[in-house]
Design a binder for these strands. Structure first.
Length: 496
RNA sequence: GGUCUUGUGGCCGAGUGGCUAGGCAGAGCUCUGCAAAAGCUUGUACAGCGGUUCGAAUCCGCUCGAGACCUCCA
């Protein structure tokens, strides 16, 4: 098995990945809050973990991939005082909260499918785990790490750290500093400490999403769902937890606190965070209003775009950088990616058709063999080095040169030998399709082709070249179409 | 203000203390009815200033610039 190194946010180091229970791997990724359309920045994060999921599977692990849908509890604005995002949209659009959830969940799934992301093994939702969230809240109260206050329940960070919890460890924050920074803020209100976060919130009368609990009508806090669902499906300690960089604090910090507080164990072995997508050097985000919707990209309708870009172009574009670097989004970069992607796809078509031809008159060419071997190794070295897809792609281009040479007859398969040739073919195809998830975007527009052929048909017909005419008819028929040669005009139709 | 990241050739984007990343664009050549594709060749790159070192774009310090988190965000 390949030796994969992962950058662990917790230790700030690249570590060799060793699952708790090989070959099984448990992996949790924070999914979207479905109150709005997903934008491209979101897509980058999910693509990063799609690559991880694909690569782990490719090198032989059996992965359980859990990615949640947040459909309650995520509040608008400051801390724990805002409105529920979904509830707010529901009121705004005069719909049931679950209609909002369904609409944007559908959008989310559709977009990810377009980008060829694999579905997770389990996709749990927060509202489907209210019971678990109440139970965990109760456990934390029982352990003295949470307290009820006016119908809401808060996690007691000071208590947690007194017991050696280490709140702030993941994001590199010092508790005292955090306390100092927030000391002057007012509106502490129900909390003992401004840093304490909500496990359960009392529902105000106008709040439409609410459930019964030991503390009255309310709804769960945002951070709690991930703890409950990851624990339920992956266990109290599991292998990998991923998400966007911006979730590191406070969300993931709180998850650790909740998990460790309730079970006494660190919930996660490897924390992974993908970096932001930027536009003109600034983070793409909904609140900054500089986000791109996938649909705008595919249509080329965003004011900053001067043409449309296909899903695979964008996927390829994202993979040209490493997931921990910020990636800047621009027309020039996307155009370059489009060409590069197509060149790679041409190579894919070629290698799939190439067959090995034995030839005793040719001797193995050590230079070519070593270049191909290095290219193959380089692809895996790239993936193994914290999913450095940029390196993998660079090596794929080196292999592509060999493939083109084979295609042009400048290099013969026999010069590589049957083993190296087969390895070239297998590596190139499986890495591109299975691991990077880049697939051909076929042009399904038969209209233009059929019309072009029809024009030729008319010319041959006029010239009485009936052998050509028959040939074209046969070609149409083979593709499920018929030519309708009428008195007034010539047209084609689907064969009935 | 605190914590952290970052500054690579026309554009994007990897990277290691000494050995060509790669893509796109540009130039030349080969091939070619034309064209395209492809192959080959080609580019005074590593923000600035100091320091460590036989040697630094890569380590250290300072200066300047950019960004992220500290509040909702993938």
């Amino acid at each position: 098995m390949q030796s994969l190194k992962i950058y662990n946010t917790l230790t700030r180091e690249k570590e060799v990945f060793q699952p708790i229970n090989a070959p099984y791997v448990g992996m949790y990724v924070c999914g979207p809050t479905v109150y709005n359309y997903v934008h491209l920045g979101n897509v980058r994060t999910f693509t990063t973990f799609d690559i991880l999921y694909r690569y782990l599977t490719h090198i032989g692990y059996k992965v359980r991939y859990v990615r949640n849908i947040t459909d309650v509890g995520h509040l608008v604005g400051d801390g724990d005082e805002g409105e529920d995002k979904i509830g707010k949209m529901a009121k705004l659009e005069k719909l049931e909260p679950m209609e909002i959830v369904q609409r944007y969940t559908n959008d989310f799934h559709q977009v990810l499918t377009q980008f060829n992301l694999l579905p997770p093994s389990i996709e749990p939702s927060a509202t489907g785990h209210i019971v678990e969230q109440i139970e965990t809240t109760q456990t934390l109260i029982d352990k003295g790490l949470a307290y009820e206050s006016n119908g809401s329940v808060y996690f007691d960070i000071a208590k947690y750290n007194e017991q050696g919890g280490g709140y702030g460890k993941l994001s590199g924050r010092v508790l005292d500093d955090l306390l100092t920074e927030t000391r002057d803020l007012d509106g502490v209100g129900e909390k003992r400490n401004p840093l304490d976060f909500a496990l359960w919130k009392k529902a105000a009368p106008e709040h439409i999403m609410r459930w019964n609990s030991p503390w009255g009508l309310g709804f769960p806090g945002w951070h709690l769902e991930c703890t409950c669902m990851s624990t339920k499906y992956l266990g109290e300690t599991f292998d990998i937890h991923g998400g966007g960089m911006d979730l590191k604090f406070p969300h993931h910090e709180c998850e650790i606190a909740q998990g460790k507080g309730s079970t006494g164990k660190d919930p996660v072995r490897y924390w992974m965070h993908s970096n932001m997508l930027t536009v003109n050097g600034q983070k793409m985000s909904k609140s900054l209003g500089n986000s791109f919707l996938p649909a705008e990209l595919f249509a080329g309708s965003h004011p900053l775009l001067d043409q449309a870009y296909s899903p695979m172009t964008v996927r390829f574009f994202m993979l040209q950088s490493q997931y921990r670097s910020t990636l800047d989004f621009s027309n020039d970069a996307l155009k370059a990616a489009q060409k590069g992607y197509k060149r790679l796809m041409n190579g894919l078509r070629i290698i799939k058709q190439l067959e090995y031809v034995a030839d005793d008159t040719l001797t193995p060419d050590e230079k070519h063999i070593s270049e191909v071997t290095k290219g193959i190794q380089g692809c895996y070295d790239g993936m193994n080095d914290d999913l450095n897809t940029a390196i993998t792609i660079a090596n794929l281009y080196n292999l592509l040169k060999k493939i083109n040479q084979l295609y042009m007859g400048q290099l013969q398969p026999a010069q590589l030998g049957v083993t190296v040739f087969a390895a070239l073919k297998t590596t190139f195809v499986s890495l591109i399709e299975e691991v990077l998830g880049l697939i051909e975007e076929k042009n399904n527009n038969i209209e233009a082709f059929a019309n072009g052929m029809l024009a030729l048909y008319s010319e041959y017909k006029a010239a009485k070249q009936y052998d050509k005419v028959d040939q074209i008819r046969t070609y149409f028929k083979a593709n499920g179409l018929v030519i309708k040669d009428m008195k007034t005009r010539i047209d084609w139709a689907y064969e009935e």
